[in-house]
Design a protein around this nucleic acid. Sequence first.
RNA 1: GCGGGUGUGGCGGAAUGGUAGACGCCGGGGACUUAAAAUCCCCUGAUCCUAUAGAUCGUGUGGGUUCGAGUCCCACCACCCGCACCA
Length: 836
Amino acid sequence: MTDTRFDPSKADGRWQRAWDEAGTFTADSASPKPKSFILEMFPYPSGRIHMGHVRNYTMGDVLARYKKMRGHEVLHPMGWDAFGMPAENAAMEKKVHPGAWTRSNIEAMKAQLRRIGFALDWTREFATCDPEYYGHEQSLFIDMYEAGLVYRRQSEVNWDPVDMTVLANEQVIDGKGWRSGAEVEKRKLDQWFLKITDFAGELLDGLAELKDWPDKVRLMQENWIGKSSGLEFSFELSNGDKLPVYSTRPDTIFGASFCAVAADHPLAQQVGASNPAAASFIEECKRGGTTAAELETAEKLGFDTGITAKHPFTGAPLPVLIANFVLMDYGTGAVMGVPGHDQRDFEFATKYELPIVRVVASDPAQAGEPFKGEAEPGDGVIVNSDFLDGMSVEEAKAQVIKRAEDDQWGEGTTVWRLRDWGVSRQRYWGTPIPFIHCDTCGVVPVPKDQLPVTLPDDVDFETPGNPLERHPTWSKTSCPKCGGDARRETDTLDTFTNSSWYFLRFASQPVDAPFDPEEVAKWMPVEHYIGGIEHAILHLLYARFWTRALKHIGKLDVAEPFAALFTQGMVTHETYSLGDGSWLSPDEVRKDGADWTRIEDGAPVSAGRVVKMSKSKKNVVDPDNIIADYGADAVRWFMLSDSPPERDLPWSEAGIEGCGRFVQRLWRLFESLDPTAAGEDKALARKAHQAIVAVAEDIEALSFNKAVARIYELTGTAEKAAPSESRNFAIRTILHLVSPMMPHLAEEVWSRQNESGLIADAVWPEHDPAMLVEDEVTIAVQHKGKLRDTLTAPKGASKEDLEALALASEKVQRSLDGAEIRKVIVVPDRLVNIVT
RNA sequence: GCGGGUGUGGCGGAAUGGUAGACGCCGGGGACUUAAAAUCCCCUGAUCCUAUAGAUCGUGUGGGUUCGAGUCCCACCACCCGCACCA
């Protein structure tokens, strides 16, 4: 009996339960099979799964299922990056506990993920807010502290003077606090740091081994780590002090016309102490946020200290200014200003009328050439520079460093742009930093047998600031060393810490340790790691750093956590707005002919740009509704179709309808299989064999859109073919090829065809290499580089034969029109180009 | 400001330096039906045209290399992402 339609509302749940009951996707670390660890970046439990998650996890799912078909033991886990600000915001706005809010979100989102039919090993699920997880994190943090990788120092935060609280960069809007609207100030606090800079060289060199990472991500990390070599030297100041500066361009030292120091540089502080005008300038520099983008786009401001610095070669006095664009965190917090060859210095010098001297020119004759309104940071020949004249930039750099070292007033150094990782957060919903402050003993780690240090449940979100700090009793404790009264650290760890080692916990989860290195070694490194490009630098660098740091302290023997990385694009949707600029969601609008209107009242709606789905623009589509309408397989198919996975995917109603139709089309094709059909259809069989190879290659390259196109093509051909053994082979082939993408449909068909077991446990079909080769090829014939004719020739035909065939073409002769042939280019099996 | 990326029909896109537009969506025409849905078949880059044929143009813009450029090189434009306390 044949059913004319596939009913996902019945089949989806049936097969999801079947996989669960059979433990189909439970990873066995004792298996002798080759291991594949497929991982997608775990979600923050915001409340609902969104289409971006669906796309991300569908890609990983196809890979995981494919690897299983290829005979691998697959680890494909899921968990929750559960600490973070939104839970605290919910606590303030909705009066729910961050933990309760997070837990109920996890429950809802887990149910959603199950409905999409992902091949996940739920036995290894955890949330980073589980004390069983963050307790181990605290233990690792203490290990790092004992290895000298953790330290405390003062660092700036965004301070909201009205709410009396620290703000995240995200909470600073145009330099103002997002709730209070008060002008944000920079304030210094004692904070915890991880010494990622100790690993700068390793993290940089390690990039070279990451062959299966996108070049762009490696390049971004390389630039972020920012290795530079230059000269560190000290200016002698008119007040008798020395001012150490660092420059990557010592070759331009004769072009220096001023020195600039950061507002929080000791020299600036010293000047500010006795000069009220300087003090108020320094205060002014404290206004605004702490982000690089803000600092660098802000108007360049300076304050002349009246102090001068003696140029090391000419002895000329250079004014020393306090400048808002100099960063205390980079180099020495002080620079020599060379306006001719650095754009920031140029703008600063122009504003404060400081000399702009050319010391690099395109050739020596251009030494007097004026600047055209901007600095010239490029390469050239050194001019106006005494003994450096005529040298290249590189030669001059080396010469200046050599002189400085010979005369002992400076030395060549390597400086990194990478800064140590500040992990302190003055917030509740994070991993408590496991330290105790004792007036007698100083900072003392919590003894490991007292871990985890758990968060208190009874917290107050009514008043702003850090609830841990305000808690009446939580921070009160005794010193593990002297037993005296002491105070718990009330800062929590940056949430990036939680995501820096979670993959290790997926691989191995003993009760009494963060992980077992032997178990970890069976699965790590992650074979494919998939997530958004927005994590290209921070998360991926921090995870690489933790892995290396843990190796360094002997906890594990893996240097790089992610063998291959894939960064997928966003899911986008058209936006809709009313005349007043307010946004409407897709289900509030309707298309009337060419125009859009609001369903409710027919008000005209303008359809706007296609952008990332976001709550604020209301252009979101809920996966649950779509699954209810079309089934999980149609949604999965949509996520894989059309757009290359690294690019944005525009969601459309028409698109998902098309996918729903294709699911039914496949169903009819599978139902049309006739086991009694006989006879060979060589062309069709050949296409099927070619598809087996091509789809496998496409999946391995994560080119799911191409795999989808090939399956469409083979499906179209099989549909039109007359019944034959070959056609049955093609149909069974399609069933296997789509099974990682449409697992529910595949299982349903598999069981209806009375196959044993689950298709999820089936193997990838074999291809016959002899069937891949075509007998005939189409040859393009060009005249003067333009296509004039195409002809069919046997594969492997000789150049002479192809040339003769081409010249015999009537169309070619017409195009040639008797012209003299100067040259004929023949590319075997491809084309013939006749040049006249 | 700095760093990274993207740009091909109405839309998403395909194309080891070798037939640009595979495959899908939308649209048009037709078949089936009392009708609709579903399904099936055909057409579908632009312009010209003496129209089953043929010609020209066409991969963000302007140059260049090559027998041949979406692909390689140079310059530019537009848009997107990241910038260390969003996750």
